[in-house]
């Protein structure tokens, strides 16, 4: 235990591998004549650091901007403002050619294993393809590596020539992970990687991800709406609401001492699979407002049970309570 803690401490000291600074993404809403009418404010001023071998979890409800955050880092959609510093370089200013090289090092695993694998290709080819694009090894080496990765992720090698539809959801997710591993990445962006899977398969994939993190020294950005999964896998957690990162802390700190009213409500509404545990539930009123017209002041004030006059007018700024626990709320 002490060794583990020491390791964690050492990790904190080391420089972050990926720094996301003030990330902002607005999607324009255009009129039929191409004039921009308004913006969907998907991500607003999101900042976090990702250290080597560390996992940061992003949680929030649908439409809170957690997936957009992941996608803009890889520039799958272009960011509106902000910076993502990877190994000293800002990804958002790189030319397409340079960006391609970076994509080798930052890989993405998607939620839906049914639509993220090419149905016309054999799984072996799917894994080889990414190595081919990035010119890694010769043909024989590539096949050998693909075979190894399949075995490592728990797919039998003799299934190399099968098509994606011949596999179950969990197996397909393993293939997606093998494909991402093929190009020797150092960062994984995992967008709801286990949400589509059944409970018994979900735990298999989570364990696999944890093993791979140690083995390949990967840093994970783990995006999920499932707080218990995020708690299990993450070292740090960022809670998002309507495009804003409202609270960020180490996992244990966040669960023991949540500060933001939204985090509290979110934690209290997770159904616990045990009838012996009974908790006071905070039930939030109403729905998440539209990101086209987010509420003034604190974006959460329309649903917050502790709202005060100040919340409606002023945007809260981050306050640090203890060791890196950040919260954006007027009450603290």
């Amino acid at each position: 235990m002490s060794q583990q803690q020491a390791e964690k401490e050492a990790r904190k000291q080391s420089a972050p591998i990926l720094q996301v600074k003030n990330l902002k993404k607005y999607y324009p809403i255009t009129s039929p004549f191409g004039k921009t009418k308004d913006f969907v404010k998907a991500v607003e001023q999101v900042t976090f650091d990702l250290t080597e071998k560390e996992t940061i979890g992003l949680v929030g409800e649908s439409g809170c901007g957690k997936s957009t955050t992941g996608r803009t880092i890889l520039r799958l959609t272009e960011p509106t403002e902000g910076a993502a510093i990877y190994k000293g370089r800002d990804l958002f200013t790189l030319k397409p050619k340079e960006m391609k090289k970076v994509r080798k090092e930052i890989q993405m695993v998607f939620q839906d294993p049914h639509s993220s694998l090419n149905p016309k290709k054999r799984i072996g080819e799917i894994i080889e393809e990414s190595m081919k694009i990035h010119r890694i090894g010769n043909k024989a080496e590539r096949i050998e590596k693909a075979m190894y990765l399949l075995r490592r992720t728990g797919i039998r090698e003799d299934q190399y020539y099968k098509f994606p539809h011949e596999f179950s959801g969990g197996q397909r997710q393993r293939i997606g992970i093998a494909r991402a591993l093929a190009v020797n990445p150092s960062v994984f962006i995992l967008d709801e990687p286990v949400s589509a899977l059944d409970v018994s398969i979900q735990s298999q994939v989570i364990n696999l991800l944890e093993e791979l993190q140690d083995e390949f020294k990967l840093a994970y950005l783990f995006i999920s709406h499932d707080l218990s999964v995020v708690r299990h896998i993450s070292d740090q957690i960022g809670v998002m609401y309507l495009g804003h990162l409202v609270e960020k802390a180490s996992t244990d700190e966040l669960f023991e001492n949540p500060l933001h009213p939204y985090t509290k409500a979110l934690l209290s509404s997770i159904p616990i699979p045990d009838t012996r545990v009974r908790r006071e539930r905070i039930i939030l009123k109403g729905d998440v407002p539209s990101p086209i017209n987010p509420p003034s002041g604190c974006v959460f004030h329309t649903r917050c049970p502790f709202v005060i006059e100040k919340c409606k007018k002023e945007k809260p700024i981050y306050k640090e309570s203890t060791n890196g626990h950040l919260v954006a709320c007027h009450l603290y």
Binding site: E61, H225, L266, P271, R281, I283, L284, D287
Partner: peptide, 11 residues
Amino acid sequence: LDVTIQAQILD
């Protein structure tokens, strides 16, 4: 549904 909405509906 999202967890906060789920809690409402179950109620």
